[in-house]
Design a protein around this nucleic acid. Structure first.
Lengths: 294, 294
DNA sequence: TCGAGTAATACCGGGAGAGCATCATGTTTA
DNA sequence: TAAACATGATGCTCTCCCGGTATTACTCGA
């Protein structure tokens, strides 16, 4: 088995791509760091870094292992905190994941409500995309997620929190912004489009493809975060379909236009949790919020 | 920071609730195990086990920490497996570029074959013209291209995937469509011609110019995509030389006629990849497809 | 061709951890 | 009630691992 020191060493080298600088960051010298990495690679059984005397870069396996190493370190640093909290007699601890977009709409009021119901419970918040939240709920790293469909209803219970419309984000200087009517599909036939990632933001991707007649040749960027999309719109790289709550982001130079599409409020946000979650704080919260198991 | 040994020690004691038996399970003696737990409790900053000289039990904090410890150990034991899978190419990511026309011939079967060889590899597909594919392969944004010559054989390896004939696309109502023989160059001497772009579709342009005696004064359109050409033919804007696979496009109002030209199947489609590509999934795929380096 | 930059290797010294022996303490039993 | 037993903690010693220093090997650029 590798050690935590080897993991921190690897993370540092992976980030610096330079043994000397990484060693400096770790307050050690370069030779033992080199040996740490060698040992790590031996126990892992794969080359993680491709290096010659002049250049260091991550291998494909190294990139994947870097993710795991970061998760391990995060978990390891949180674990004692959890234990201490419980030891100090606090009532409990809830780890809640939320999508960036939901942070600008439902998160504030929801936290207030939670605070009223279980004031003695500590809340950990983590911004994660839906897929990461589902992963976290499965491994027990999260208690509650604020996420988008689809999710496996065999494994998760859910409660619809919020519905909202989609709007079109355009640069404020864009001709469409002066239009006095809702945007039609035809208005966009020659517009450069900033699109949701079909893997990372599958919910929005599917929604947009279903409701709007996307010309894939117009797609100039594929991104996974709403905030990134709006920033790109502000930078005049194109237009983007975003949920209405993105209007609360407060980014300058962007106008949000209504869409003349079929469904009124197609964007859903659900609270989801593992059916066999046992955290007493969660159980109490769900009961008092009257999120009936469904 | 605690160590993995301390975690395994703690898990063993928590499960056995007995230092001696836990030590035995870990193939060690009891004293160092006691000290491991003491150290762990010190770094965690909370009592994990409530023990007197007769009895060992978990504290509330200990129960919570046990969960986290198990999660950490599970993650730590999975991480190297994932890394090894990726290093061996059994898992990972492949980005494949293809030309629009190849999408209608070889792409489906090839993807099926790939799926059989490396089922756990995620495939990203991007429709790109040959030039863009070559660019992508050079910058590393693409792993494999399905493209047409010419390409720099110093930089790229290739494997001939497919050969096909050129045919002449004509409007279904066109007099030539009723001809009961192959089309000769002279048949076209007064026909409006939809031609390939000499820059964007250089391969087809060169091929057609080489094999057929083109009268440039007949060229009414210059386009880069086969699909566009066939659409223009359907709109009776002229006739066009297209690869045989275009017959699978299923566009109405177009007939495809055999050409009486020299070469039988002059249109080539190659799989090409960067000679020093390192993506293990690609390496494995190439090996198993027996695309010998050439 | 030489010097600079950088990762790997050789060698050494200190400290952490394992084992053995023993202690402390509470429980069982004669 | 006292002795034997069970069990976790502690003291001591020894080994091995890890880190530091010095050096090497190799590549690239001037």
């Amino acid at each position: 088995m590798f050690t935590f020191d080897q993991l921190t060493g690897f993370i540092a080298v992976a980030e610096e791509l330079h043994f000397g600088r990484a060693a400096e960051r770790l307050n050690m010298t370069q030779p033992p760091l080199s040996r740490q990495i060698q040992k790590l690679e031996k126990t892992v059984g794969a080359e993680l870094l491709d290096r010659d005397n002049r250049r260091v870069e991550l291998t494909a396996a190294g990139r994947a292992f870097l993710d795991e190493a970061r998760r391990l370190m995060a978990l390891a640093s949180r674990a004692p905190v959890t234990a201490r909290r419980i030891a100090s007699g606090r009532q409990g601890h809830l780890r809640i994941g939320f999508t960036a977009a939901s942070g600008f709409s439902i998160l504030g009021p929801l936290l207030e409500e939670i605070g009223a119901i279980v004031p003695d419970v500590d809340i950990d918040l983590q911004e994660l995309v839906t897929g990461e939240q589902i992963q976290g709920l499965l491994t027990g790293e999260l208690d509650l997620g604020l996420a988008r469909p689809p999710f496996d209803t065999e494994v998760f219970n859910s409660h619809l929190l919020y519905r909202e419309s989609m709007v079109l984000a355009v640069p404020a200087s864009h001709p469409l912004a002066d239009l006095k009517r809702d945007i039609q599909n035809e208005d966009l036939k020659d517009e450069p489009l900033i699109m949701h990632s079909p893997t990372q933001a599958r919910y929005f991707y599917d929604l947009v493809v279903r409701l709007h007649d996307i010309r894939h040749e117009n797609v100039v960027h594929t991104v996974s975060q709403i905030l990134t999309m709006v920033s790109l719109v502000a930078a005049k790289r194109g237009v983007a379909f975003v949920p209405h709550s993105a209007t609360a982001l407060g980014i300058r130079g962007v106008s949000f236009l209504r869409l003349a599409s079929g469904e009124e409020e197609p964007v859903e946000l659900h609270a989801i949790w593992n059916r066999d979650a046992k955290n007493p704080a969660l159980v109490r919260l769900l009961r008092d919020l009257e999120f009936a198991a469904n």
